[in-house]
């Protein structure tokens, strides 16, 4: 296996110029493989500065980095010019708390979050843990930076905070713990049967915007995305000039935007906008608004020249 000099030099320059650099498939907002996505999820949780390089659009680096690192798989993390590891090793270091130092992040204090369980949820969690937990397996709650909650069985790691609540023992890693205070876990009936629901008061909510505020926002000329989530037929009938109809192509484009982009949803009366807004919240967007009363309110209160239907 050889590595030509120009590719070797290119990789050397890259890892010297970027203190924390992840060689991955895709980029942080759209990882193109599960292993890359996993490492991005971990890195995002630390809030540290890092750069990524997409090997899918750099064919020479894609093969070259494997030889350079003597490592056969992507992703690969470099810190300070040194190879740290791939997905498995990063995941393991995350669990043991060994990632704080290379990423230059102070470990958060081991604060025990207050977690509430409804009586039904406590019963069901206790049963689930007893059924699926082998020796050394404990119930874990993790909460991603975009406030996606996951319940799982896993061994205890040194970075876990132990929470005793309603007779159930829950382990929460320190980064999640900072996002878990005040969480309520309940049991709900869904189409797929019973499931746990995690209500997190720390998660961003859909914010309601009046048509008046929307008008001011448009006039202020600040950048934001005004997104119309009605059908193409409705859009033909009546629309705001500044609003973009969300079709498949726009939907895919929106997913690649930075997660702090301001998104404002607009529909006919409001409910469809709320649904769409919640979907984008769950994708990690944090500045998400819905226009109260929708286009109907706009026509009534702001601009009667927009047809009502």
């Amino acid at each position: 296996m050889s590595l030509d000099d120009s590719t070797r030099q290119k990789i050397t320059d890259l890892i010297e110029q970027n203190r924390v650099l992840l060689f991955m498939k895709g980029d942080r907002s759209a990882p193109q493989c599960g292993f890359s996505a996993r490492v991005i999820e971990i890195l995002e949780g630390y809030g540290a500065e890092y750069e990524t390089l997409d090997v899918l659009s750099n064919a020479d680096v894609r093969e070259g980095i494997k030889v350079y690192s003597s490592w056969p798989t992507i992703p690969q993390l470099y810190v300070g010019g040194e190879f740290i590891g791939g997905c498995d090793i990063i995941t393991e270091m995350h669990g043991t708390g060994e990632l704080f130092e290379p990423l230059g992040v102070e470990p958060p204090p081991a604060v025990t979050p207050e977690i509430h369980l409804t009586a039904e949820a406590a019963d069901a969690l206790g049963q689930a843990a007893a059924q699926s937990g082998g020796p050394g397996q404990h119930l874990h709650l993790s909460i991603s930076p975009s406030f996606q909650s996951t319940l799982s069985m896993a061994p205890q790691s040194p970075m876990d905070v132990v929470v005793e609540t309603s007779g159930v023992t829950l382990m929460v890693d320190r980064l999640s713990a900072a996002r878990a205070n005040g969480v309520t876990i309940s049991l709900v009936e869904t189409q797929d049967g019973r499931g746990f629901k995690v209500d997190n008061p720390n998660a961003p909510q859909v914010q309601t915007m009046s048509v008046q505020s929307l008008k001011e926002l448009i006039e202020a000329g600040e950048p934001f995305e005004l997104l119309d989530v009605r059908t193409p037929e409705e859009y033909e009938t009546a629309r705001l000039e500044q609003a973009q109809l969300v079709d498949q192509r726009l939907f895919e484009h929106l997913q690649t935007l930075p997660r702090d982009t301001r998104l404002v949803f607009l529909c006919h009366h409001g409910p469809r906008g709320v649904q769409a807004a919640e979907q984008f919240l769950s994708m990690g967007f944090t500045d998400v608004h819905n226009v109260a009363g929708g286009l109907h309110a706009w026509s009534q209160e702001i601009d009667p020249s927009v047809p009502q239907y």
Partner: peptide, 14 residues
């Protein structure tokens, strides 16, 4: 692991 992966890289390339 790098020692091992380095040794078998030719079997994993392409």
């Amino acid at each position: 692991q790098q020692l091992v992966y380095g040794a078998i890289a030719h079997l994993m390339a392409g």
